[in-house]
Amino acid sequence: MTGIVALYIFMLAAFTGYEVISRVPVILHTPLMSGSNFVHGIVLVGAMVALGNAHTPLEKTIGFIGVLLAAINAMGGYVVTERMLEMFKSSRARGPRPGAH
């Protein structure tokens, strides 16, 4: 990937993130923060590759810690976000919300 293409991807992804969040109501701030916290758990993929290419004991140790931490980020982020949003379902099931938002 050439530098300039990478820069384009960076710019477009940044705008995408901004656009996606820009009209979110306050009631979703906490779950959304948790959800975006889960999404950067994708660091797991990078940590796996880093450990997969590690050779010295030092590299392996740090790589192992990296995968461990990334797995906690991804799994933990998913579980708590799912738990929070689960409750929004139950309040919806009680009847559609009239008017507001």
Binding site: F10, T16, V20, S36, I42
Partner: peptide
């Protein structure tokens, strides 16, 4: 995948 997901969270998180 890391570039896109990380950058999206970076900018969404800044706005949040």
């Amino acid at each position: 995948a890391m570039i896109v997901a990380g950058t999206v969270v970076g900018s969404a998180g800044t706005l949040l």
